[in-house]
Amino acid sequence: MYAATSLAILVVMGLALIRAILGPTAFDRLLSVNMFGTKTVLLIAVITALCLAAGCFLGITGGFGIYRLPDFFTRLHASSVTDSACAFLILFALMLQSGFTLATVKLCFIFFFLVLSSTTATHALAKTARSRGLEPLLGREDKR
């Protein structure tokens, strides 16, 4: 649904651009540039919604994984889905909303430190669990 909406908006933007290039009078050009601007704002809103929805889905996937997977070491992988892609999509959506402001810079910092610290935490947790004698469950070869 969102993808179709953004595609439609992109088509409208393209048509407006064509009119702006062809447009016999200056008024035609101004009209189409105005339309282009409006559609850009709409497109940003749709992309924001798209990113938030995808981020939420990934977050739910991570939560479901941490509930469903059989042992500690496999659950680590579920949490790393939440840490990487889910965090990025949601922060990216917020960046689109805040535009070229200091808030965007801060969101970038948040993402940077989130990735850095969650990676370190995952490794530290796994290493400690292993050295404390927690044996990973080993599985069969999977069917591709």
């Binding site: 070491f73 790393s80 990487s84 796994a126 290493k127 292993r130």
Partner: peptide
């Protein structure tokens, strides 16, 4: 290298000894 492995979902680096990395992967593939 170890951090790149950990940040990729599906593989986690468990231990580093010298230049040997112990890696836990969710799937064989």
């Amino acid at each position: 290298y170890a951090n790149s492995i950990t940040v990729t979902p599906g593989t986690v680096c468990i231990n580093v000894e010298g230049n040997k990395l112990e890696v836990h992967a969710l799937t064989w593939s």
